[in-house]
Nucleic acid binder design. Structure first.
Lengths: 329, 329
DNA sequence: CATTAATATGAAACGCATTATAAATCGCGA
DNA sequence: TCGCGATTTATAATGCGTTTCATATTAATG
C-alpha cells in the first residue's frame, strides 16, 4: 500500500535516502536513518517486490523442474533445494513436468520472461537441442538426470557405477539368472545404469535373455506386474535388478502373496534408498543416491552462477553412490 | 533482451499497438497484427514479467506454505495444487515452514511485498493472532490445518469424525484396551481428532489411561519407539490409534521384530491412507484423507478469490473422510 | 590555510509494459 | 454533405524502487 514516496514524505527526506536505508548503503546520517526506519514502521511499509525486480533486473527466484513431486526421490531433492534457496535469499518455484515434454518447455519459458533468475532441471524430458535455446537467457543446470551431449553444468551420480555394483552384488551372492527392470531407454541415466549392469554381467560371462528385460517400469503396480510375468515363466530368474525401490517393493509384495521367498527364491535389489526400502519386510537392498547432497549442491551451484553471473563453462560434478545391503538379497 | 520498444520500432508501430497484440485487445488492424507478430518472432521477444507485474499489480503467483514436503501427505497436496495452478495460469512458490513459526511468518511476508497474489496455508505453526495482520494484504486461506477462531476461508476434513470412526472401528473389533498416539495438542486438528476418539470411547464407557497416551509422535522412528514403550509395559493395550500411517508403520515393523502378531496381539489403525499403508504387510487400516481433492479445492478457491478480488467472508468447506479397512485391525 | 577526500542528500533518469487520453480515419444514416 | 459512433493508432502518464549525477557539507592532509 505505502510507497517509498510516502515514507520519504513522512520522514521529510527523499526517496533516495529511504532507499539507502532499506538497502544498507553507507553515507546515511544515523539520526535520519532512524527517522526513516520509524516512518517505515509507522506506515507498515515493505518495498514492492515487482518494482525492485524491474529496476534490479533480478528476481531472486529460482525454478526447479521435476517430473513428479509425489515421488519421494524428488520430494527429498526439492526439500534440500528449498532449504538452501531460503538461506541464500531465493524463492523457489516448483514446476512439475509430469513427464511431459510440452510442460517442461513451458516451464523453461519462465527464464525468457525473466520471471526467474535460473532453472534447475531435475527432469529431462526434452533433448538438449530443445533446451539449448533457453540457456542464453540465464543459467540452466541439470541435476540428477543428464544428457551426455548437453553443454550445461550438471550435478549427478555415476549411474554406470550404480548398475555395476548392484549387479556385482547379485553375482557375488551366487546368482547367474538375473533379470532387469529399468526405465525408458530414451533416458541417458537409465541407459548408463543398464550399461553398468551389463558390464558386471559380462565380466562374469553372463547375459540376460530378452524375456527377462522389463523396460519402462516405475511404480509399485509395475513391480507387482513384473512379478506376475516372472511367475508365469517356465524358466525363472533367481534375482532381479530393479530400477527403483518402488518397483522392488511391488515385486516383493506380490512375491509374498504367491508364497515366494525373498531372497531365497528371488533376490531383489532396488535403487534410490528411499524410506520404504527400510520399511517393508524384508528390507530392500538398494543403491543409495545422495538426494540431499545432490539437491544442496545443485542449488548452491545455481546461486553461485547467478551471483557471479559467470558464463560457467560446462561443469560436471559427480557424486558417490553406494550399495546398502538389507535382506532382499 | 528485446523490449516492447524494439518490437515497436521493428514493426514500425507504437508500443501501444504491440501491447494490444500481446494482450489480444480489439481494434488492431489484421495486417499490422501480423507485422507485430513477425517482429516479435524475429526478435525472440517475450514480455518482461517484472514490468507486467509492476504495472498490472498482479504477480500470477501463489505461495503454498507446508510443514514438510518430504511428508507424502504434503507432496500429494502440493501435487494437486501445482496442477490446478498451472491450468489457471499461476506459478507456485513452495514454502516449507519446517515446523518453525518464524519461517512461516517470514513466508507470509511474501504477501506484504506483493511477491505473490495469495497464500495457501497448509501448515499452521502460528496462532491466528499472528497471521491475521497479513490478511489485509491479500487472500490467505488455510487448507487441511485450521484454527477454530481464525477468520479465514478453510478447506479441511472433519477430524472429530475421523477420530470417531477409527476408534469406533477398533471398538467394534472387540477392543477395550486402546492406546492413542497423536500429534501435538497445540494443533487444533490434533485436538479435534482426539475429541473424536474420546467421543467414541465414551459412548462405550471406555477411556485411556495416561500411560497409553503418546502425544507428539510423527514418523516411523517414533512409531518404533512407541512399540518399545508398549512392549515394556505390564498392562498392554490391544489396539492403538495412530495419528499417521508412518507412525502406524513404525509400530507394526517394530512389533514384528518382537514376534508380536498384528492384529491379533495389537491392532493398529493409521491415518491419511498414504501409499505405505497399502504397501507394508499387514496392510494398515487407516482413515483416508482426500489430499488430491483438498489441494484442488484450495487452489481453485484461491484463484477465485484473486480473480474476483472478493473479500470472501469466512468460508468453510469440509471434505469427507472415510475408513479404509486392511489387515492391521 | 588551502585543498583533496570522505560524507551526506536530493533531483531526475531508468527499468518495461500497460493504460488513459487524445486524435485521426472510416462508415453509415439523416 | 454533415454528424456521430466505431475503428485504429500514437503520445504520455503510470506503477515503484534503484541508480546516476550533481551538489553541499565536513573532515583530513600537507
Amino acid at each position: 500500500m505505502a510507497t517509498i514516496k510516502e515514507v520519504a514524505a513522512k520522514s521529510g527526506l527523499s526517496p533516495t535516502t529511504v532507499s539507502r536505508v532499506i538497502n544498507n548503503h553507507p553515507y546515511v546520517d544515523d539520526a535520519k536513518r532512524k527517522k526513516v526506519m520509524q516512518a517505515m514502521e509507522d506506515l507498515g511499509y515493505v518495498p514492492n517486490s515487482s518494482a525492485r525486480r524491474l529496476r534490479g533486473q533480478r528476481t531472486n527466484t529460482i525454478a526447479v523442474i521435476i517430473s513428479r513431486i509425489v515421488n519421494p526421490f524428488f520430494s527429498h531433492l526439492v526439500d534440500a533445494m528449498e532449504l538452501i534457496a531460503g538461506e541464500k535469499g531465493y524463492q523457489l518455484i516448483l514446476c512439475d513436468s509430469r513427464l511431459d515434454k510440452g510442460r517442461e518447455l513451458r516451464h523453461l519459458e519462465l527464464l525468457k520472461a525473466k520471471q526467474v533468475d535460473g532453472i534447475i532441471l531435475a527432469s529431462l524430458q526434452n533433448e538438449w537441442k530443445a533446451i539449448e535455446p533457453f540457456t542464453k537467457y540465464g543459467p540452466v543446470i541439470s541435476c540428477n538426470e543428464y544428457d551426455t551431449n548437453a553443454q550445461m553444468p550438471v550435478i549427478r551420480c555415476d549411474q554406470v557405477y550404480g548398475g555395476y555394483i548392484g549387479t556385482k552384488h547379485l553375482i557375488e551372492k551366487g546368482h547367474t539368472k538375473i533379470a532387469y527392470a529399468g526405465g525408458a531407454d530414451r533416458i541417458q541415466l537409465t541407459r548408463d545404469r543398464k550399461t553398468g549392469v551389463f558390464k558386471a554381467l559380462k565380466e562374469h560371462g553372463l547375459s540376460i535373455p530378452e524375456e527377462w528385460m522389463f523396460p519402462s517400469f516405475y511404480g509399485i503396480e509395475d513391480g507387482k506386474n513384473i512379478f506376475q510375468r516372472i511367475y508365469a515363466m517356465e524358466n525363472r530368474p533367481t534375482a532381479i535388478f530393479a530400477g527403483g525401490d518402488e518397483v522392488a517393493a511391488g515385486i516383493i509384495q506380490e512375491a509374498k502373496r504367491f508364497n515366494y521367498r525373498i531372497p531365497e527364491d528371488l533376490a531383489v535389489i532396488g535403487y534410490d534408498n528411499q524410506p520404504i526400502a527400510d520399511l517393508i519386510n524384508p528390507g530392500i537392498t538398494t543403491i543409495e543416491q545422495p538426494m540431499k547432497l545432490m539437491g544442496t549442491r545443485a542449488m548452491e551451484m545455481m546461486v553461485d552462477m547467478i551471483a557471479y553471473n559467470r558464463k560457467v563453462t560446462y561443469k560436471k560434478e559427480i557424486l558417490p553412490l553406494q550399495l546398502v545391503v538389507r535382506q532382499s538379497t
